[in-house]
């Protein structure tokens, strides 16, 4: 055991002591006799309570990385250590794309899905789920089926399902990718409010630079496949942030430019590889 002073100095050298520690992981998919190396030796630490965004060219292994953290894939090499207090709460929940909402459940039952799977009594889970729907501007739509909702509302149901489950970590895979630009900004704003009051540890994958810089404490840029972490940017914009206003901030524009510089070559490379 380290005493507290030793731990404090260790923290200064090695970064935080609580968080998600991704060490040297690699994932190779085997399909018949061809194999695809999706991600290659990723080292990444996400501090507890941090909002980390990941951008990268398509096909570089972002989804694979997130699915490993979500327990849906196992790494071919390396390890993931999750050292975050979660007491009675689940460790992590994923927010999938919009199609991940169950069409056969009402908005309320969708939002309560995680709680139900964990065996929370009906009355209690309905209370929590409808409170979360209300926060996301969906009161009055509890009994509505997803098919009857707009894309933006459906994506809010998706967020409500993850937030109502109250996990320590949220893993989001391009959750707003299918929304139009204006709706996207509105949902980003909702997401910012929810996160700023709960301060969960978030790993958020997006293909939108604006989105990454709007939401994140840090933005990681991944290389073309096999994906590695190529660059990391601190986003020092003040919180609470407003998704509708932040884009005019000169600091926003500056940091966005820097992130794009790091990403541009990777995107061009990935495109070239695709054409070959």
């Amino acid at each position: 055991m380290l005493d507290s002073s030793a731990r404090a100095s260790a923290e200064q050298v090695d970064g935080p002591s609580t968080g998600i520690f991704i060490r040297d992981i690699e994932k190779v998919f085997q399909a018949g006799d061809t194999s695809v190396r999706a991600i290659d030796r990723i080292d990444l630490t996400i501090a507890e309570g941090e909002f980390l965004c990941i951008v990268g060219p398509s096909g570089c292994g972002k989804t694979t990385l997130l699915r490993i953290l979500g327990g849906l894939e196992t790494p071919s090499r390396g390890e993931v250590e999750i050292n975050i207090r979660h007491e009675n709460r689940p460790v992590q929940s994923m927010v999938f794309q919009e199609q991940g909402v169950f069409p056969w459940l009402s908005a309320l039952d969708n939002a309560a899905f995680g709680l139900q799977a964990r065996g929370v009594p009906k009355k209690e889970r309905r209370k929590q789920a409808s409170a979360m729907l209300k926060k996301l501007g969906l009161s009055g739509f509890e009994d509505t089926y997803p098919r009857e909702l707009s894309g933006g509302m459906r994506q809010r149901v998706n967020l409500a399902r993850a937030f109502a489950n109250d996990p320590a970590i949220l893993l989001m895979d391009e959750p707003l990718g299918a929304l139009d630009e204006q709706t996207k900004m509105l949902v980003q704003d909702d997401l910012l409010k929810l996160w700023e009051e709960s301060r969960k540890t978030v790993l958020f994958i997006t293909h939108s630079l604006d989105e990454a810089v709007t939401l994140g404490d840090r933005v990681a840029v991944m290389s073309h496949r096999p994906g590695r972490i190529k660059a990391m940017f601190d986003i020092d914009l003040p919180r609470p942030r407003n998704a509708l206003e932040i884009r005019n901030n000169p600091e926003f524009i500056e940091v966005r430019r820097k992130v794009w510089e790091a990403l541009r070559d990777e995107v061009l490379f990935a495109r070239k590889a695709e054409h070959e």
Partner: peptide, 29 residues
């Protein structure tokens, strides 16, 4: 059945045995 439904259920802690009634059956109805 859309694989994403099973992924969601698994990620939210649905046991493999319960997967049939929570996801497969409603999805195929």
């Amino acid at each position: 059945v859309e694989p994403i439904y099973r992924d969601v259920a698994r990620n939210f802690g649905v046991k493999p045995r319960q997967l049939y009634f929570t996801v497969t059956l409603p999805a195929v109805l």
